[in-house]
């Protein structure tokens, strides 16, 4: 949707189909980046349920990764991660 629509091309009324924000990237907001350690992860889903940007990727009840296209790097996932040894399953690192 990089080209701006003219009024004749707009969807009816003041509407748009669901879920189009998926196409909008907010990953470039990040100053910190979450790093996921799959081997430490206990798949408790605490990061997933508390992610404001729906950016914890899950499949069949397990975490599979982080959606960096949308993750804004707030660090909630790392903060909430309950894993202690050998270290949190998610940590935050500075973006390059």
């Amino acid at each position: 949707m990089s080209k701006k629509l003219g009024w004749k091309e707009l969807p009816f009324g003041d509407s748009i189909k669901a879920g189009t924000a998926e196409q909008f990237e907010t990953g470039d907001w990040r100053s910190l980046k979450p790093i996921w350690y799959a081997d430490r992860c206990i798949h408790c889903m605490r990061c997933w349920i508390n992610c404001p940007d729906s950016s914890i990727e899950v499949k069949d009840g397990k975490m599979t990764g982080i959606d960096l296209k949308h993750c804004k790097g707030c660090g909630i996932c790392a903060f909430e991660c309950p894993v202690k040894k050998p270290g949190k399953a998610i940590t935050m690192e500075a973006e390059r």
Binding site: K4, L10, G13, S15, K17, A18
Partner: peptide, 21 residues
Amino acid sequence: KEPKTFGLLDLQDYYFEHKMP
């Protein structure tokens, strides 16, 4: 079955277009 969003926020780039219909 085909969910849609109604009553969105328009910035300067779309409000004018939405008044034309």
